[in-house]
Simulated assay, not measured.
Amino acid sequence: MNTSIYNISLLDLLWVMIPVAVVIVVYMRWTQDKATLFYALFRMLIQLMLIGYVLTYIFDADSPYLVILILSIMLIAASMITLRPVQKRYKSLYFHAFISIFVGGFFSLGMVVFGVLDLNPWYEPRFLIPIAGMIFANSMNAVSISAERFESEISRGNGYIDARATSYKAALIPIINALFAVGLVSLPGMMTGQILSGVDPLIAVRYQIMVMLMILGSAGISVAIYLLLLKKDIIEN
């Protein structure tokens, strides 16, 4: 099996900017928003270029304290980004988002690190940081969807129980769709990356099963905790 990786030059990356340019034009014309998408793309480019250098340093440093610091920064950033679509933001919401992603994320992360992979050392950054990133990102997206939907349902006059049910179901739609589609419609990121790097597809499948399960578990738990924490706010208000 060929284990080589195709080298992608910066110039070659411009090809994928063609469909992106189409999206930008449609987005600007239909939404009249001329800043958000450009800002998001700019941040993505800067953040990925910087993280490339940061990860190189972290991998060489081999320090558990540095890994913990990176995970903390990732968690704080995720909890702040979570509430971006919410109109009425108050301080306790950020605390709810942080707690929900922290508990749901680290619970699933612990199962993977100490159970499935049994990493030695446990803070092996080449595994821990990418896996934590997938967990936090998917939990963040799920909580974000639930937060926006919950606010919308409450504003329509629905009660907490109905709003919670609708929000929880909506938050898990992307993940449930991914469960239906994986292997049939799509080969997800980790599996694709491993196959491209020459890993046996059967081994890549096991890793992808692990990823799908940890994403469902972490996102589902995070959303449940967030919605439960909101109950106190509803009662107080």
Rank of each mutant, 00 (worst) to 15 (best):
V16E: 01
D162R: 12
R164C: 11
A78S: 09
F150E: 04
S218N: 06
D200Q: 13
R126K: 14
I70K: 00
A165F: 03
I173S: 06
L13F: 05
A132S: 13
A40Y: 05
L55Y: 09
M134V: 11
V67I: 09
D162M: 08
M44L: 06
V182R: 01
D12F: 03
M44H: 01
N120A: 14
A224L: 09
D162C: 04
V86I: 06
I68E: 05
K231V: 04
V116W: 14
D200W: 09
S155C: 14
L179W: 12
S79Y: 00
S63C: 04
V20P: 02
Y94G: 03
A181M: 09
N141A: 15
F127E: 09
G104V: 11
S167Y: 03
V22Y: 09
K231M: 06
V23P: 01
L196D: 12
A97S: 15
V23R: 00
P125F: 04
F180H: 11
P19Y: 08
F59D: 05
P125R: 08
Y123T: 07
V185F: 06
A61L: 14
I203S: 11
N141P: 06
M190R: 07
V143A: 03
L93A: 10
I234Y: 12
R206Y: 15
Q208W: 10
V211S: 08
A204N: 04
I101H: 10
P64R: 05
L69F: 06
L187E: 06
A165I: 12
I73F: 11
A224C: 03
F106R: 04
I235R: 03
Y94I: 08
G110L: 08
F59E: 04
I101S: 12
M191I: 12
I234A: 09
V223A: 00
I235D: 05
L10T: 13
L216G: 07
K88S: 12
F127I: 10
Y123K: 05
R43M: 07
Y168D: 09
L196F: 13
G105K: 06
D200T: 11
Q194S: 11
G105H: 08
P130T: 09
A147F: 06
I175R: 01
T192F: 12
K91E: 07
F98S: 00
S9P: 00
Y90D: 13
V67W: 02
D62K: 10
M49V: 10
L117W: 07
I195M: 15
N2P: 15
G157K: 07
D60N: 13
I131T: 12
I234C: 06
I5T: 07
V103M: 13
I203R: 10
I18W: 04
I203T: 13
L196W: 11
S72F: 10
Y39A: 01
V20I: 13
V116Y: 14
I46A: 11
L41K: 00
G220M: 05
L117K: 13
A219W: 02
L216P: 03
W15P: 01
A78G: 01
N141C: 12
P174W: 11
V223Y: 00
G193K: 06
L11P: 03
L230V: 00
P130S: 05
